[in-house]
Design a protein around this nucleic acid. Structure first.
Length: 800
DNA sequence: GAGCACTGC
């Protein structure tokens, strides 16, 4: 394998069936660690959220929660704790994904057409490595379907191909097709992936399998990295990157064929690409589209692509036994600890992967397990356990640890968020413990507020999780809910496009002169969402009142940013603060959570953060972090560690800034900041004016002491405690509204009301705002400006 | 005065 042995990768040779970690909430209920499917009456009401349950192991030992006194209080209600796992039921939906395909080895020499020893790409003899890999490829289920793939793709312009984990579709199908279509009319084949790391590792693997150098015949292209050349016939890339290419080349004229992989993940980019490419197929004689997906939604895709033919490839992996609880549990975190403990004591050697819901929960569970099991010998692991956390904001070296072998005779236990579901693949996992929950972004269209909620996963997600146990040998998955509960799960995760703000997408479609209301979506988003985006783009000056893209809007569409940030960026050069705003926009878009705050070092982390704070603006705080980071670039790892900063986040902000700067320059803007001398306030004002230019719709006004009203929807909010703004401004701009224990606004900046007015006189008129406080404050600013927003809306509606 | 699942251009 070319992949090395301790890196994190989405893929190793094969494709993964997966559902992308994007979950639809749709559930308004908070689950509070209550196990999925647990009874909704009886015991529930008598327990306060802080209470813990005792759990008794089979041999009568009592595992205590953190509050032993309260445990005793409830000792008469100790729950029968030995989970009674029911056996895996053959009729379960999972079986299809886990089926094994008999191996049939063929004698002939593979896709190189049986012509013998010479590599048609390089003219050289195939290497020994090529033949070794070829033997592995012959064992993939896809191998015996090569002729079928070539034939059906040859006869059709749309093809849907489904195959589960282990089918080999991601590496083999593009390879097979590139032999025939990769040089057609001097055009190449692109294969999209939802994740950067997948695009890179798959390209590496395929280059090796084809015995060519990466970047020659086979390459990849992701943001900031282009490993392709004029020789390239097969390019793996992220879906978002290919979508961006449509801005300069709407007909995708470089490509003879595009293969969309992991379509079931339904990222926004994949959904928009599918709609665009469907059109391209009708407009270009010489273009084909192949859509690859996990099995569950094949029919829907076929129908969408004009009843496209279906190629179905079986998956192949080691069998995974699924165990369910016979009774729902009351506290899934306790049940998880108990399940892990039981596996460790009773089950044969092998690592355990546990899915939990966030850093907080993971840290608690790591501590619990270390205390209870560290030196407790288990089956096959005489010295106890080695417990590791895994979530995406963990420093890279901590992430690396999950790939390393544990100390001798210790069982490795990884407690992970759903990064481990698709993005990070850990080999050697034998046991998976799945409580059946994930944190999911929920969008409330009524007040237009997004929040994160814990909700049951989809069935597709549960299947994906259980598959993590069968990668290197047969495994067992323990689902901490009943089989009935599994049956009641939503089949697929709700597509991202139906629960997101579409401002950026709508601008891009308009730039290509497409009508977003009539766009052929696989799942059309609510028309209100599209209208809202049009309205927002109108206020930002990206569209005119007839819905046409303005010159300014065209410039905005060039940046890989939300339109609000694009406008902020474009406002900066005139204000003489291009460099500062480039850094801030890069930080907001690429490193929004750059501050690390581990629970056990919260105070030190807060202190470290305070050193960067600007009292009038959290955006300026981000600028300070960025500036300091660039100064300490040579020793950044150490420096980030000492200052409780996420180095990977800052690295990506630095790259983003470079790219944005280039794009700004290309459009003829000066990216130099004017020398304001040592006029700190002049500079601060200029920067905050630029921020106002783009984000005036995210403004709030103080309505009572320490409480603000958002102008957009009259949500009463408080400053998030993480904010460093201490000036108690009347007006402010916020970057994010989060609802947790209360409604908070995060990353805020003090602004003047007059700046808001300058940024969009059409938006800030008193009669736009239903709330008296907001109208009154705006009236104070505007005098008697009256321009009806409803009139503007009427114009917009007529335009579509 | 408190909590941030996960991607991507």
């Amino acid at each position: 394998m070319s992949n090395g042995n301790d890196r994190w990768s989405a893929l190793k040779g094969d494709s993964q069936g997966s559902d992308g970690g994007r979950r639809y909430g749709g559930y308004n209920k908070q689950y509070n660690r209550k196990g999925y499917g647990s009874r909704q009456s009886g015991l529930e009401g008598r327990y306060n959220s802080g209470d813990r349950y005792q759990l008794k192991t089979e041999d009568g030992e009592v595992l205590r929660g953190s509050q032993s006194s309260s445990d005793r209080r409830f000792s008469n209600r100790v729950i029968e704790t030995k989970p009674r796992w029911s056996r895996f039921n053959d009729s379960s939906k999972d079986r299809a994904a886990l089926g094994e395909e008999p191996l049939v080895l063929r004698k002939d020499l593979d896709v190189a057409d049986g012509k013998g020893e010479r590599n048609p790409h390089t003219g050289r003899n195939f290497s020994r490595n090529y033949y070794q890999l070829l033997e592995l490829r012959k064992k993939l289920p896809i191998y015996n379907h090569r002729d079928e793939v070539l034939k059906i793709v040859g006869e059709n312009k749309f093809v849907v191909l489904v195959g589960d984990t282990g089918s080999g579709k991601t590496t083999q199908v593009p390879q097979i097709l590139s032999m025939k279509y990769g040089k057609e009319n001097n055009k190449l084949i692109a294969c999209t992936q939802p994740r950067r790391i997948a695009a890179v590792t798959v390209a590496q693997r395929v280059a090796e399998e084809m015995d060519v150098r990466l970047g020659d015949e086979v390459g990849y292209s992701i943001r900031y990295e282009d490993e392709t050349s004029s020789r390239t016939i097969l390019k793996y890339c992220t879906d978002g990157l290919l979508l961006r290419e449509s801005v300069t080349d709407p007909l995708f004229s470089k490509y003879s064929m595009i293969i969309i992989d992991e379509a079931h993940e339904r990222t926004i980019s994949t959904d928009i690409l599918m709609g665009m490419l469907k059109q391209v197929v009708f407009e270009r004689e010489d273009f084909r589209l192949v859509v690859m997906s996990a099995t569950l939604d094949a029919e829907k895709l076929q129908k969408y692509f004009n009843n496209a033919p279906l190629i179905s490839i079986p998956g192949r992996m080691f069998p995974v036994d699924i165990k369910y609880l016979e009774e729902p549990v009351e506290d899934y975190l306790r049940a998880t600890i108990e399940a892990v403990s039981q596996i460790h004591r009773e089950e044969a050697a092998g690592d355990i992967l546990v899915f939990l819901n966030g850093e907080d929960e993971i840290s608690t569970a790591v501590k619990d397990l270390e205390e209870s099991l560290r030196n407790v010998p288990g089956e096959g692991h005489a010295s106890g356990v080695h417990v590791l956390p895994l979530f995406s904001s963990l420093p890279s070296n901590a992430i690396q640890k999950v790939f390393q072998d544990p100390p001798p005779n210790k069982r490795k236990i990884v407690l992970a968020t759903n990064v481990a579901e698709t993005s990070i693949t850990i080999d050697g996992i034998v046991y998976v413990v799945d409580p059946g929950f994930a944190k999911q972004k929920v969008y409330n269209p009524r007040n237009r507020v997004e929040s994160l909620q814990v909700a049951p996963v989809s069935a597709a997600s549960a299947v994906q999780r259980s598959g993590r146990a069968g990668r290197t040998r047969a495994g067992i998955t323990y689902r901490l809910y009943t089989e009935d509960a599994f049956e009641s799960l939503t089949a697929m995760t709700y597509p991202e496009i139906l629960r997101s703000n579409l401002n950026s997408v709508v601008l891009q479609l308009r730039t290509l002169s497409m009508n977003p209301v009539q766009f052929d979506f696989l799942d059309p988003p609510p028309p209100e969402t599209v209208m809202r985006a049009l309205e927002c783009l109108l206020y930002l000056g990206a569209l005119d009142q007839t819905g046409q893209v303005t010159k300014f809007g065209k410039a905005m569409s060039v940046f890989p940013l939300d339109p609000e940030l694009s406008r902020t960026l474009l406002a900066a050069p005139d204000l003489g603060v291009a460099q500062e705003v480039l850094a801030i926009v890069a930080m907001v878009s690429a490193a929004p959570n750059c501050f690390v705050r581990p629970l056990n070092k919260a105070r030190e982390a807060d202190q470290a953060k305070r050193r960067f704070e600007a009292e009038e603006s959290d955006h300026l705080t981000l600028l300070n972090v960025y500036t300091e980071y660039m100064i300490h670039n040579s020793s950044s790892q150490q420096w980030c560690w000492e200052n409780f900063l996420n180095e990977r986040a800052l690295q990506s902000a630095a790259k983003a800034k470079e790219q944005l700067e280039r794009l700004l320059e290309q459009q003829g803007y000066s990216t130099k900041s004017k020398r304001i001398g040592f006029d700190y306030y002049g500079q601060s004002i200029a920067i905050r004016k630029a921020i106002t230019q783009g984000n005036f719709m995210f403004s709030a006004v103080e309505c009572k002491r320490a409480t603000y009203l958002t102008t957009k929807d009259n949500v009463e909010v408080k400053l998030h405690p993480s904010s460093g703004v201490r000036t108690r401004p009347t007006w402010l701009i916020y970057n994010e509204l989060v609802i947790t224990t209360k409604a908070f606004i995060r990353t805020v900046t003090q602004v003047e009301g007059s700046w808001l007015l300058e940024s969009s006189p059409n938006y800030f008129t008193p009669d736009h705002f239903t709330n008296d406080v907001v109208s009154y404050e705006i009236a104070k600013l505007t005098g008697e400006r009256k321009k009806s927003r409803s009139a503007m809306n009427t114009n917009l509606r007529q335009a579509y």
